[in-house]
Design a protein around this nucleic acid. Structure first.
Ligand SMILES: NC(=O)c1ccc[n+]([C@@H]2O[C@H](COP(=O)([O-])OP(=O)(O)OC[C@H]3O[C@@H](n4cnc5c(N)ncnc54)[C@H](O)[C@@H]3O)[C@@H](O)[C@H]2O)c1
Ligand SMILES: NC(=O)c1ccc[n+]([C@@H]2O[C@H](COP(=O)([O-])OP(=O)(O)OC[C@H]3O[C@@H](n4cnc5c(N)ncnc54)[C@H](O)[C@@H]3O)[C@@H](O)[C@H]2O)c1
Lengths: 207, 207
DNA sequence: TTAGCCTTGTGAATTCTTTCACAATATAGG
DNA sequence: CCTATATTGTGAAAGAATTCACAAGGCTAA
């Protein structure tokens, strides 16, 4: 397969969401022009992105909505479920636990961990909060494939090291910390400070 | 000024955080090589980024940590405070209200809004929750410059329209919705689904 | 002062990404 | 069947971002 850029993957997510809507609206087909219009992109961009994974359109007609949606789901790994654990049941962790959209996309939170003795053993929205001390064992036993980190920044590297030790290959991190992982582990950090700083940059410089 | 790309702005945020740490560690200077190393970039990238805004290094020595930090703060608009309002005091909204780092960077939450009669008028972590019905008036009266949207996706466009009407030029949105704003308004959307989908893409395709 | 070393700032080269443009091919209607 | 019209898939072109590479400048130490 040709190299797929980060921006292409992000756009695939966007196409997927458009296609979900289109399917609900009962549309059978969509053209690259229309898909582009909805996401403020160019039709050529849409076609190039999709062509990286094969050719599933029909000339003169466009793409079958259902078919394309399935295909993108397959590419993004959304046509299956993933076993997820969340570490750090604080403000952010709690918000994520109640976020139903994740489960709808197949990301099933199976385990919660914390280090706070007052939280460990308690029930949180239907989940037992486990002791982060047993992290490696529990992640392995429960065949967790994806971990969400929502612990304080100064704890993040330590926790991630354990997660890596447990053989987990994919980590979503909310701590604003510069975390090191081995090459075979995929880490994404959501840094809200960065987003808001972009806004103030825009206010100061662009507007 | 030359055009500053989105990626440059993001990297400036990263440099800023490194410099904060360096300053705490008592370092007086830092070279592009060291700054790059800490963020897994190339030295040339660092120098190119900084050179867009002037030349504030010393050949042979590097950059003054304190000086460079101040300069980036100025570029990103972090050397001042911003008046922020948050709309939608649910899971995400509450998490953001308790997030102290925002205030440390000068983003001061001044107002909270909700549409839920059970929340309106209540005190939430020291803030009175206001009625979103009075949004336009209150945003104007309080000279709000930046708004954070944490309402359900199907409410987001409606709320943003009001925010724009109130003359706010910068919006940080957490709702997974495709929101339209006029050209003079700067909107950034934090889409967590997109991040997690990137992880599953990596699991399926790369690892 | 001079030699040796280090690091910036920046054009040029390279690599990556997006857009263009058009042949290929499908549909619809007569 | 033929013509008019629509839209894909993709090389080639254009544009953007990153990296290279080196002159220019500054520091240290003898
Ligand atoms: N609150 C926000 O809106 C927000 C925004 C952006 C980023 N963040 C970041 O997200 C992370 C979590 O933020 P929060 O507001 O939820 O913090 P929080 O203090 O509310 O929650 C952190 C939780 O992690 C637990 N914890 C601490 N050390 C641990 C460890 N070693 N192992 C397991 N659990 C541990 C704590 O007991 C607590 O329950 C932080 O890194 C923060 O900087 C938060
Ligand atoms: N919870 C998460 O972890 C998470 C993750 C990613 C994205 N999101 C998105 O963030 C947004 C908020 O999520 P949440 O979990 O906090 O939801 P929530 O239901 O807990 O909170 C939403 C809040 O907005 C208020 N509200 C509804 N309509 C409003 C309106 N018109 N004006 C003002 N307030 C209004 C509600 O009363 C509620 O207090 C949603 O769009 C959600 O999709 C949430």
């Amino acid at each position: 397969m040709k190299k797929v850029s980060e921006s292409t993957v992000r756009r695939l997510s966007r196409y997927y969401r458009v296609l979900q809507v289109m399917e609900k609206e009962g549309e059978a087909t969509i053209s690259s022009r229309e898909l582009a219009q909805r996401e403020k992109l160019t039709p050529a961009q849409v076609r190039k992105d999709l062509s990286l994974f094969g050719s599933f359109g029909t000339r003169g007609l466009g793409y079958g909505v259902k078919e394309l949606k399935e295909r993108i789901a397959q590419i993004l790994g959304l046509n299956r479920t993933w076993r997820v654990a969340l570490i750090g049941v604080g403000n952010v962790g709690s918000a994520l636990v109640s976020y139903k959209e994740f489960a709808k996309q197949g990301f099933l939170i199976k385990l919660l961990f914390d280090s706070d003795q007052r939280k460990i053993g308690k029930n949180h929205k239907g989940f037992l909060i486990k002791d982060v001390g047993d992290l490696v064992r529990d992640l392995k036993e429960n065949q967790i494939e994806l971990v969400i980190i929502a612990v304080p920044a100064d704890q993040a590297q330590k926790v991630v090291d354990q997660v890596v030790k447990a053989g987990v290959k994919s980590i979503l991190n909310f701590a604003p910390a510069n975390i090191k992982v081995p090459d075979h582990v995929f880490l994404r950090t959501v840094n809200m400070a960065m987003e808001i700083e972009h806004l103030s940059f825009a206010l100061v410089n662009l507007i």
